[in-house]
Design a protein around this nucleic acid. Structure first.
Length: 192
DNA sequence: CATGAGATCATCT
DNA sequence: GATGATCTCATGC
């Protein structure tokens, strides 16, 4: 019997695949969506990761147990939500980049990491909290069968967004994943 | 449709 | 003191 936390206790790239098709529910329970786009980030060996310089006050959650939230502020404006992945002690996280909203008039209201946190009203107060509990912002696994159904539309892969400064090796990794044809995608994937 | 600039601040050097 | 794991709006083809 493998728990959701076990599913995330693996390399961030594998955890990213598992997260596609899972649901995120806002802390007030009024907004929710299905994850359709993610990006995997590793530890010190990943030049694009916030953990590249080791454990700092900001990225400390990335070194902790999987299933917790890592939230940071980018460009002084947008919050970004990550699900901590990899085994406890091994740095890793998955940036949630796009949701297909369940209750919303605009299907693209959560397309993109900044828009998503605005829609779910996520800010850094959620940082460091356990996403697998029954209160607050939470992550819900609908089960392997439903996740597989979501993935069956096709998993797109491409370079992570906005990491050019990390160098060509980091850019070459196809660690951005998305579900083909979903409105919640932040932007197109490169053709291949 | 493509490109570019501005917003705005916690974190790290 | 510099710098982003972004978004939106404005301008120019």
């Amino acid at each position: 019997m493998s728990s959701t936390r076990d599913l995330l206790s693996v390399h961030p790239l594998v955890a990213a695949e598992q997260l596609l098709g899972m649901r995120i529910v806002s802390s007030d329970g009024r907004r929710a969506g299905t994850i359709v786009e993610v990006e995997a980030y590793g530890g010190p060996e990943d030049r694009a990761s916030h953990a590249r310089a080791g454990r700092t006050a900001r990225c400390a959650p990335m070194f902790g147990p999987p299933g917790f939230a890592y939230v940071y502020l980018i460009y002084g404006i947008h919050h970004c939500l990550n699900v901590v992945a990899h085994a406890d002690g091994e740095a890793g996280a998955v940036l949630i980049r796009g949701l297909d909203p369940e209750v919303a008039d605009d299907p693209r209201c959560a397309a993109g990491p900044g828009r998503l946190t605005r829609h779910l009203e996520v800010d850094r107060t959620a940082g460091g909290s356990d996403l697998l509990g029954h209160r607050g912002l939470r992550l819900v696994d609908p089960g392997e069968a439903l996740r597989a159904e979501v993935r069956s539309a096709g998993v797109l892969r491409g370079p992570r967004i906005g990491i050019e400064g990390a160098g060509p090796e980091a850019v070459a990794l196809p660690w951005r994943l998305g579900i083909a044809g979903r409105p919640g995608l932040s932007r197109p994937f490169p053709a291949r």
